[in-house]
Design a protein around this nucleic acid. Structure first.
Lengths: 248, 248
DNA sequence: CGCAGAATTGATACATCTCAAGCTGGGTGG
DNA sequence: CCACCCAGCTTGAGATGTATCAATTCTGCG
């Protein structure tokens, strides 16, 4: 794949890496064909803004690969991340033209896009898409509510532990954990982005990560590469019920 | 209506006060008839718990009247409200048996309930319900994200101002504001519930309300009855963009 | 009237923010 | 090939907003 990424290739839905988890997951072959017709790919570079809050957005999309964020910015510059979009997540809201948040690529990112109007027609005529989108939205709402607990009631240390656990758990589900029970993965976010996620300053994020490292709860190589030698130990630091464990 | 409220009466969907805004809003007469058959009413007293987080919940429901809250409780007692259910809001998630949060009535409350299984069948066979539920869930997600900004980045004073503005705006839309431009309404929550909503302690809530009162931003009679003499002034205190104003 | 829950107010402690100074690693140009 | 540079990160010291602990004082209601 060249420097322009997927936008240059023509991936068919059958070969799509997010085929079974995205908004199209429940589609039959003929429904898929209708999507196939209108879809197109777009690539973004790390740091690139996809839309500014308040701007018009003429498409909706699925994240094929990479990571994007949704964030609110107040007039005086305070920023709060309100969504983290990973592969298979859906971007945009049917029936709304104006984006309510800034959407930013935090890594190389590929979107599978649909122009708004055709997608809204499909949504009306294809219950499979409607149902899947409802399911995904309910999942997002659950995640947002979990996040609200983190923002409103957890200490800085618990916030950091929670974020690392969330990212680590997701990665463990995909890449399989190592035989010795360690969980190893890369943080997709800078310290500043983590601060925006958790409602902290980047200095506090840095201090808490250092503390967890000092106490052996995590190990870090470079700035992003994390090893969790004992996941249940990390879970204790999140303040959550300890039960669920790695695969809850 | 006697001491037992609506559960004692038999309201037909045609007369229902939330007919045009609840999950059933888009239903045609024959679809409504199917709902009518399975629905039943339940009443709760202020302070009563409807379900505990983790418990089985064998029904879903619409709020007909009154106010309920969803809240997370941590092992050590810290609590964060993650949802505020007002008339026409939907309670429960199709496809999930276990309630993820505590659901509590904060006023006299009447629910229009459906047993889980029949409702899930209806959801599959009735696109109108599916579409309406998607729309409502997307609205809730928007509200949750607004709330995340409040929790993560606003000061105690801005949090209080935001909460009063949210409640006041909703009430103004219903009961019509007074001719002189004042907005008058009752807070549906105790100081403690406001604290749980905003991620504060009840003492801080009380202090900030006192400060806004002292400075003439709001007036209060009794503990609940609020008058906002100058709504734009209140909006300034929320930290949000001032534009939207009362009817944004 | 009197009581219990709800709210206010005060004094102090502490977690996190703010401001400021250095560090580190990867990339670039001389 | 090395010196420099810069974004991202770490660490420190002090300021500050909110929590905590502890009395009172209201308010609604039986």
């Amino acid at each position: 794949m060249g420097k322009f990424g997927l936008a240059e290739t023509h991936l068919t839905c059958g070969d799509c890496p997010i085929r079974h988890r995205a908004v199209c997951a429940r589609c039959e072959t003929e429904e898929l064909a209708a999507l196939e017709e209108t879809k197109y790919y777009r690539d973004y570079e790390p740091g690139q803004t996809i839309v500014w809050g308040g701007d018009e957005m003429d498409f909706v999309a699925s994240v094929v690969s990479g990571v994007a964020t949704l964030s609110h910015t107040m007039e005086d510059g305070r920023r709060q991340m309100v969504g983290l979009l990973l592969p298979s997540d859906f971007l945009g809201r049917p029936g709304r033209r104006l984006a309510p948040y800034d959407v930013t690529a935090v890594s190389k990112l590929t979107l599978c896009c649909f122009r708004r109007a055709p997608f809204e027609d499909l949504l009306l005529s294809t219950p499979a898409i409607n149902r899947r989108l409802l399911e995904m939205t309910l999942d997002e709402l659950d995640a947002a509510r979990e996040w609200m607990l983190i923002l409103g009631r957890k200490t800085a240390r618990e916030k950091i532990a929670s974020l690392i656990a969330i990212v680590g758990r997701r990665d463990a589900a995909l890449h399989m954990m190592r035989a010795d029970g360690q969980v190893v993965f890369d943080l997709p976010l800078t310290r500043e982005a983590m601060a925006d996620y958790l409602g902290l300053t980047l200095e506090t994020v840095s201090r808490q990560i250092s503390a967890l490292k000092r106490e052996g709860v995590i190990r870090i190589e470079g700035n992003r590469h994390v090893t969790v030698p004992d996941f249940p130990r990390l879970m204790e630091e999140t303040g959550d019920d300890t039960d669920g464990g790695l695969l809850s």
